[in-house]
């Protein structure tokens, strides 16, 4: 690098500060372009992927594709059952992991004492966030499919949702704790000084301020859950479903077998016929639209709460 040579030239100066602005400006510029290059690499890869998928899949997208069951004939096949399965599973995952994750986060951050036990729990939760998803699949297979079969109905929507909820729970807990920690302590003290109990301080002052951050964390967690395939294959989500869970009876609904979009896509990609690969590309587009719609909903919710706070 040239700036090192330039730096050596000025060491003889009498001043104890080496001014040498041009070198510092150069480093500044180099760093700016280095970070810019990093952004470009990331964006280009993403754009290439999106364009490739769009070119393959867009022509295949049609109402017929969205409203048909899977089929042996690629031109008749659709992903209705997978789409409906994904929506069911995501709603259930949100319903399970939000209260449990946020509750655990609030307890650990606001209520628990600083003991070796709480520190051990904290370390374990952080580790859980890094456990491979297939392990959660094995856990779900044993606990939800086998032990809790009378409740979950075996390889059902409920089993899948519970497994995915476990998988993303650490993310929600960590995000909750981070956003609670960001709430200034002066507000808690103000609340306590007015004679509020811990619960009242959390409910009135801390939680409303932390909610936007908690929602952001939950969005991230759900975005991870919607793309997971491995744990669902492990618990035995089917790849060929030609019926929908009954809507009129929710209990029976959550206990019925299911498939989700990533599994359907995976299934199509592994077929030899090229037409099924086109279906897979179209399926990926649908998956991304569902994901974006979900995130958009959460962002709107978050902005709404942010305004109120």
């Amino acid at each position: 690098m040239t700036y090192q040579n330039e730096g050596a030239e000025t060491t003889g100066s009498t001043s104890s500060f080496e001014v040498n602005m041009s070198t510092r400006y150069k480093i500044d510029t180099v760093f700016k372009y280095a970070t810019w290059a990093a952004v470009v690499v990331a964006i280009v890869v993403l754009v290439v992927l999106l364009v490739d998928v769009a070119v393959d899949g867009l022509p295949r997208l049609s109402w017929q594709f969205l409203s048909s069951m899977p089929s042996r004939k690629p031109e008749e096949a659709g992903l209705l059952s997978a789409l409906v399965g994904t929506v069911w599973v995501m709603i259930l995952v949100a319903l399970i992991c939000f209260p449990i994750g946020v509750g655990a986060g609030i307890f650990l951050e606001e209520f628990s004492k600083d003991t070796w036990f709480s520190r051990a729990i904290e370390i374990n939760i952080n580790n859980l966030a890094g456990v491979p998803s297939i392990i959660y699949g094995l856990l779900g297979l044993q606990v939800f499919v086998r032990w809790l079969e009378p409740v979950t109905g075996g390889r059902s929507i409920l089993t899948g949702a519970a497994t995915l909820a476990l998988l993303v729970l650490p993310i929600v807990i960590v995000a909750t704790r981070e956003s609670l920690r960001a709430v200034p302590d002066s507000l808690r003290q103000a609340g306590f000084a007015l004679g509020a109990t811990r619960w009242q301080v959390v409910r009135e002052h801390v939680f409303p301020l932390a909610l936007p951050g908690i929602l952001t964390g939950t969005i991230l967690a759900l975005s991870r859950a919607i793309g997971e395939t491995a744990p669902l294959i492990t618990i035995g989500a089917l790849t060929f479903i030609s019926f929908l869970p009954p809507l009129d009876n929710p209990i029976e609904g959550v206990q019925s077998p299911f498939t989700v979009l990533p599994i359907q896509v995976y299934n199509w990609v592994s077929r030899p016929q090229a037409e099924f690969h086109t279906n897979a590309a179209a399926g990926i587009i649908v998956l991304m639209v569902v994901l974006l719609a979900m995130n958009a909903t959460a962002v709107i919710l978050r902005n709404k709460f942010q305004k109120q706070a």
Partner: peptide, 19 residues
Amino acid sequence: PVEVRRRIGMVFQRPNPFP
């Protein structure tokens, strides 16, 4: 402690109104 703090008010060094 809640009763103590309810009977004895406190004002802090930096103004800390709730948002």
